[in-house]
Amino acid sequence: MLMDSNRIENLLSKYWNCETSLEEEQQLREYFKGGDIPEQWKETAALFRYFEENKKKTLNDVAFDAAIIQNVQPQKKGKLVKLFYNSMRIAAGIAVLVMAVWFVRKEVRDTTPQEVVDTYDDPQLAFEETKKALLMISKSFGTAENQAKKLNMFNEAQEEIQKKDKSKNSKL
C-alpha cells in the first residue's frame, strides 16, 4: 500500500501530538515497514520498526504452557495418593477420638464405685435370699419397735405428770 507523502506527513504530525487513533498508528507502522522511505523520515522509520521488532519478542520457551498448566492443575496422578492420604488423616482422627473415649470411660469406671452386680443366676434362689434379707430387716424393725414402746412409756408418764401439774395450777 503506497501512501502519498502528504498523508504520511499529516499522520506523523498527528502522531507526535498524540491525536492519532490506533488504526492510524497501525497505518504508520505499515508504511514504515516498507523499504522506500524518504531520507527525512529515516530515523522515524527506525522508531516504528523498533516498535514492530519489539512486538516480535516472545517468550521463548516451549515448555512454558505445560509448566503453567501443571502448576495450576491438580495433578491427576496424585489423586489416588491424595485420596488415600486424606482418608488416612480422617482414620487417624477417628482412632485418636476412640482412644480418648476409651481412656475417659476407663478412668470414670475406676474412680466411681462398682454398681450392684447381679450375683444370683437362679430367680428362686434370688427370691429366697431377698426374702431372707427383708425378713431380717423386718425382724430388726420389730425389735426396734419394742424398744421404742419402752421409750413411749416414759413419754406417756411425762404427759400424765404435765396434765396433773396443769390441773393443780388451775385449781390454785
Partner: peptide, 27 residues
C-alpha cells in the same frame, strides 16, 4: 503470555526474571 512477557521485561530487564514474573501472574 507474550504481551505480559514483553511488559515484564520492560521492568525487570532479564528474560529469565520476566519469565518468572509471567509464570507468577498466571498462577
Amino acid at each position: 503470555k507474550n504481551k505480559l512477557f514483553r511488559f515484564a521485561l520492560k521492568f525487570v530487564g532479564s528474560e529469565e526474571e520476566a519469565k518468572d514474573v509471567v509464570q507468577e501472574v498466571f498462577i
